[in-house]
Amino acid sequence: MHLIHAHWRALPEQQTPDSLKVWLKASAVPADALEHVSVHPTGPGRLTLGLFHALPRLRDAERAALRLSRRACDDGPLRAYTLLSCGSVMVPCYHNLLLAETPDTGEDGTGQDRFRPGANAWDPSGPRQD
C-alpha cells in the first residue's frame, strides 16, 4: 500500500466540499485500487488529500492518484481548485539513514527500533549520537 498526497489550492478561497471523500471513493475504478481517502484542509483555500492505493509499485500508485485527482478537477467537486502537486510522501529521517556512512541496525541488530523516540533519539541534520 502506498500513500500519495495531492495538494490543492482554490482561488478564490473555497470551503472543502462535504461530499469529497465519498465522491473520490465512488469515482475510483478497480485499477486505481483505492483503499482509503483522508481529507485535510491545510489553510484558507488549501487542501491535502491522502490517497492510499493498494498497488505493488509506487509509480502505479502515483499514476492512479493523479488520474483520480484529474477526474475530481475536471468532472467532480474540485472544479474550483488547482492541483499543485501529486506524489509519494518522503520520509527524510529514513532516507538520511540510508545515506549514512555506517548503517544503524538498532539495538537488537534488526534495524526495527531505529525510529523510536527515547534513548536512541538523534538529530537528522547530523550524525547519530549514541
Rank of each mutant, 00 (worst) to 15 (best):
M1S: 15
M1V: 14
H2Q: 09
H2R: 08
I4D: 01
I4K: 01
H5A: 14
H7A: 15
R9C: 12
A10R: 04
P12W: 01
P12V: 04
Q14S: 13
T16I: 07
T16L: 08
T16W: 05
T16V: 14
P17M: 02
S19L: 14
S19A: 15
S19R: 14
S19E: 15
V22I: 13
L24I: 01
K25M: 10
A28K: 00
V29F: 08
P30Y: 10
P30R: 10
A31R: 06
D32C: 01
D32L: 01
A33R: 14
L34S: 06
V39S: 15
H40N: 15
H40Q: 15
T42Y: 06
R46A: 07
R46I: 00
L47M: 09
L49W: 03
G50D: 11
H53V: 08
A54W: 02
L55D: 06
L55F: 08
R57T: 14
R57G: 12
R57F: 14
A61R: 08
E62Y: 05
E62H: 07
R63F: 07
A65G: 05
A65D: 02
A65Y: 02
S69Y: 03
A72G: 07
T82L: 14
L83S: 09
V89N: 05
V89D: 05
M90S: 11
P92N: 01
C93A: 13
N96M: 03
L99E: 00
A100Y: 00
A100V: 03
A100F: 00
E101R: 11
P103T: 04
P103Y: 03
D104M: 00
T105I: 01
G109P: 08
G109R: 07
G111E: 04
F115G: 10
F115S: 09
P117S: 10
P117V: 02
G118D: 08
A119S: 10
D123Q: 05
D123A: 03
P124F: 01
S125A: 13
P127G: 10
P127H: 08
R128K: 11
R128I: 03
D130W: 10
D130M: 08
D130F: 11
D130S: 12
